[in-house]
Simulated assay, not measured.
Amino acid sequence: MVALCTVLGLLLGSFANVVIYRVPAGLSVVSPPSACPSCGGRIRPQHNVPVIGWLWLRGRCADCSAPISGRYPLVELAMGVIFGAVAWGAGVTWALPLLLTLAFFSVVLTLVDLDTMRLPDALTLPFAIIAGVLIVAAAAVSGDWWSAARALAGAAVLGAFYFAAVLVYPKGMGLGDVKLAFILGGVLAWLGWAELAVGGFAAFVWGSIVGVGAMIVARRATGVRIPFGPWMFAGAWTGVILGPPIAEWYLSVTGLS
């Protein structure tokens, strides 16, 4: 399963590169076929093999020798490694397809937000639909409708919290963050309350660390903007991986357990 998911991640990493480039530009991800942005020459099938194609071409277009960004194979490689790691950690469970979906959109939306400071509806809406379908399908097959109800509650709670934050301080976040919070709240709550609590809080911890770092580098305390989507994903994965042990530790030290 790990090897299969790794190969799937490599293939989806190639598609992710198309999505990251075309969706913010308002272009179709289906047509036209991938081509060199410099000369317009179409990418040959053998050159589209994830990572290997870029190495084969030595990072240059086969037609005009224009350089091809190293980010393309890095995205493909990262997706493959992340998918393999998720499969290794989750195993063959109902959580696996949902976590793989989270992994795909984590990479895509993180890079789009870093590039454009936007979380487009054209990406968050499919993320929400796919996550919702997987959660309902898992509940229908396993009979665990409580987890699905918990996911809906978690989506509402985290989404409402971010919406309130936008109303209080509109310059700090956008509605794209609110929509993403709704989706992440559902995914994390489906896994458990500990994952939701830790994941929601960790996003602000990561965001604060990066924000302070950005201010130090810029040598100013105001006017420094950072995209928040990447740190929402960082927080979500913190909740997925460390949510239960962190929650248990917190309850023990506070005497609430």
Rank of each mutant, 00 (worst) to 15 (best):
D63Q: 12
A236Q: 09
T238N: 11
R225Y: 13
R60I: 08
R42V: 15
A140H: 10
V198I: 08
P32W: 11
L167S: 15
S65W: 10
S14T: 12
C36A: 10
W249V: 00
A87S: 12
A164R: 05
G89W: 15
I43M: 06
F182R: 15
A155H: 05
D115R: 10
V7S: 06
L99W: 05
L11W: 09
F104E: 01
G185K: 06
V141C: 04
L27P: 15
A128Q: 04
F163S: 12
G41V: 06
F163N: 10
M117D: 14
V19E: 02
T238V: 08
T124S: 08
A194Q: 01
L111S: 05
V217I: 04
L57M: 08
A66M: 04
R150F: 08
M117A: 09
L8H: 05
G41L: 09
L102A: 07
V212P: 03
A87N: 11
L123Y: 13
I52Y: 11
V217Y: 00
G89P: 14
T110V: 07
D121A: 10
V81Q: 02
S106Q: 12
G13Q: 03
V168R: 13
V49A: 06
W146K: 14
G41K: 10
R220P: 01
V187C: 12
A221Q: 04
N17R: 01
M1D: 07
L134N: 14
L12H: 08
W146T: 15
P50N: 06
I183F: 04
G243Q: 01
G223D: 04
C39Y: 02
L77D: 05
A181F: 15
L77W: 03
R225I: 10
L123A: 04
R60K: 07
I135R: 10
A234Q: 07
S257L: 09
F182T: 14
C39T: 09
Y72E: 01
I183C: 12
P227A: 09
A203P: 12
P33S: 11
L119M: 09
W146C: 15
P126N: 02
V166I: 13
A234K: 05
V29L: 13
V187K: 11
G243K: 01
W190Q: 09
V49Q: 06
I241Y: 03
Y250K: 14
L77E: 06
C39P: 05
M1S: 05
T222M: 04
V210M: 05
A181R: 15
L102H: 07
V133N: 08
A90G: 03
T238M: 03
G40T: 01
S208W: 11
L134T: 11
T93K: 06
